[in-house]
Amino acid sequence: MTTIQFIITLGGIGLSIFISWFFWLAPKGQTHAATGAGGVQEVAITVKGGYTPDVIVLKSGQLVRLTFTRQENSACSEEVLFPDFNKSSLLPEGEPVTLEFTPEKPGEYGFQCKMGMLRGKLVVE
């Protein structure tokens, strides 16, 4: 094997490991929900190429109010789905849309766009 091939091979393996780490293993930043008036946990989420924030920590048993504001017109993000709570909502561009529900059991609940390209997670403690 020539030197270049050796370098390329090493680089390839290194890149593969980096990809695994970057997308799967590296821990993601979490956002804790602020508790507003009346014990309602409120979080505002911007939808633009993804959900910001996309990992939200919540307390169980308390009402949660999530306000999504979509700031793009790509058809991908026009709906947000919470399959575990059987809730979904259309997000017209630029309009804040609020979803309310109370997560009873602790656990991780995912939310996503219709096609699954954009994802987020609710961590209920």
Partner: peptide, 10 residues
Amino acid sequence: GAWAALKHRS
């Protein structure tokens, strides 16, 4: 889209 996803580590 790719850049936005990248920022979200996906």
